[in-house]
Simulated scan of single mutants.
Amino acid sequence: MPRAIRCGCAHDRRLLRRPLLGMTRRGANATGFVAVLLWSLLALLTTRAAPVPPLLLNVVCFGIGGVVGIIWMLLTDDTGALRAVPLRVYAFGTAGLFGYHLLYFSALRLAAPHGAEAQAGLIAYLWPLLIVLLSGLLPGERLRAGHLLGAVLALAGATLLIPGTEVGGTGAGALPSYALAGLCALVWAGYSVASRRLGDVPTASVAVFCLATAALSLPLHLALEEAAWPDTNVGWAALLALGAGPVGAAFYVWDIGMKRGDIQLLGTASYAAPVLSTASLVIAGVAEPNWRLGGAAALIAAGAFLAARSSRSAAPSAP
Rank of each mutant, 00 (worst) to 15 (best):
A95N: 06
A95S: 15
A95W: 02
G96S: 09
G96P: 10
G96Y: 11
G96F: 08
L97Y: 15
L97M: 15
F98D: 06
F98W: 14
F98G: 01
H101C: 02
H101Q: 05
H101I: 00
H101D: 07
L102V: 10
L102A: 13
L102F: 14
L102W: 13
L103F: 08
F105T: 00
F105I: 01
F105G: 02
F105R: 03
S106T: 08
S106M: 04
S106R: 04
A107N: 00
L108Y: 11
L108E: 03
L108K: 09
L108R: 12
R109I: 12
L110C: 05
L110D: 02
L110R: 05
L110I: 01
L110M: 07
L110Q: 08
A111F: 06
A111N: 10
A112C: 05
P113M: 04
P113T: 06
H114Q: 09
G115T: 08
G115M: 06
A116R: 03
A116K: 10
A116Q: 08
A116S: 13
A116I: 09
A116W: 08
A116N: 10
E117S: 14
Q119T: 14
Q119H: 14
Q119W: 12
A120L: 09
A120Q: 05
A120M: 06
A120G: 10
A120K: 11
G121E: 09
L122I: 11
L122R: 09
I123R: 03
I123E: 04
I123T: 11
A124T: 15
A124N: 13
Y125C: 09
Y125M: 14
W127Q: 07
W127K: 05
L129P: 14
L129R: 07
L129C: 13
L129Y: 13
L130A: 11
L130M: 13
I131R: 10
V132D: 00
V132L: 09
V132R: 03
V132T: 14
L133Q: 08
L133M: 04
L134W: 14
L134A: 15
L134K: 02
L134P: 05
S135N: 12
S135W: 00
G136V: 03
G136P: 06
G136W: 01
G136Q: 00
L137R: 11
L137I: 04
L137Q: 10
L138N: 04
P139H: 02
G140N: 05
